[in-house]
Amino acid sequence: MPKRFVVAAFDFSELPRYAVDFELAEALSVAAQQLHETSTSQHTLRTAVRLAVHLLPGAEHADISVLERETRRRTLAWTDELVRTAAALSPDGDQQGHWSDLWTTPVAAIEDSAAGDGGRGRSLSGLGLRSVLSMRLRADRRKLTVLTVYAREPGAFDESATRIGRLFTAHVSIALDSVTVREQLTEAMRTRDLIGQATGILMERLDIDAAEAFDSLVRASQQENVKLRDIARHIVAARDGQ
Rank of each mutant, 00 (worst) to 15 (best):
residue 30 V to P: 06
residue 54 H to I: 09
residue 139 A to L: 06
residue 79 T to F: 00
residue 226 V to H: 10
residue 81 E to A: 07
residue 242 Q to P: 09
residue 180 T to D: 02
residue 209 D to P: 08
residue 217 L to D: 10
residue 10 F to M: 08
residue 221 S to E: 07
residue 169 T to Y: 00
residue 201 I to F: 10
residue 139 A to Q: 03
residue 69 R to A: 00
residue 95 Q to L: 15
residue 186 T to L: 08
residue 125 S to K: 14
residue 216 S to H: 15
residue 13 S to A: 06
residue 32 A to F: 03
residue 53 V to F: 00
residue 174 I to T: 09
residue 54 H to P: 10
residue 100 S to Y: 15
residue 210 A to C: 07
residue 142 R to G: 09
residue 50 R to A: 10
residue 107 V to H: 00
residue 227 K to D: 15
residue 118 G to W: 04
residue 156 A to V: 01
residue 201 I to Y: 10
residue 120 R to M: 11
residue 236 V to T: 07
residue 190 R to F: 07
residue 242 Q to S: 11
residue 140 D to H: 03
residue 222 Q to S: 08
residue 134 S to F: 08
residue 64 I to S: 02
residue 152 R to L: 06
residue 105 T to F: 03
residue 118 G to Y: 00
residue 100 S to F: 15
residue 14 E to K: 14
residue 149 V to T: 04
residue 117 D to I: 10
residue 59 A to M: 10
residue 234 H to G: 14
residue 241 G to D: 10
residue 28 L to W: 00
residue 207 D to G: 15
residue 226 V to I: 02
residue 147 L to K: 07
residue 132 V to C: 05
residue 42 Q to L: 01
residue 20 V to H: 14
residue 31 A to V: 03
residue 92 D to F: 09
residue 155 G to C: 05
residue 10 F to S: 10
residue 231 I to S: 03
residue 230 D to M: 09
residue 61 H to M: 12
residue 105 T to A: 07
residue 80 D to T: 03
residue 226 V to D: 05
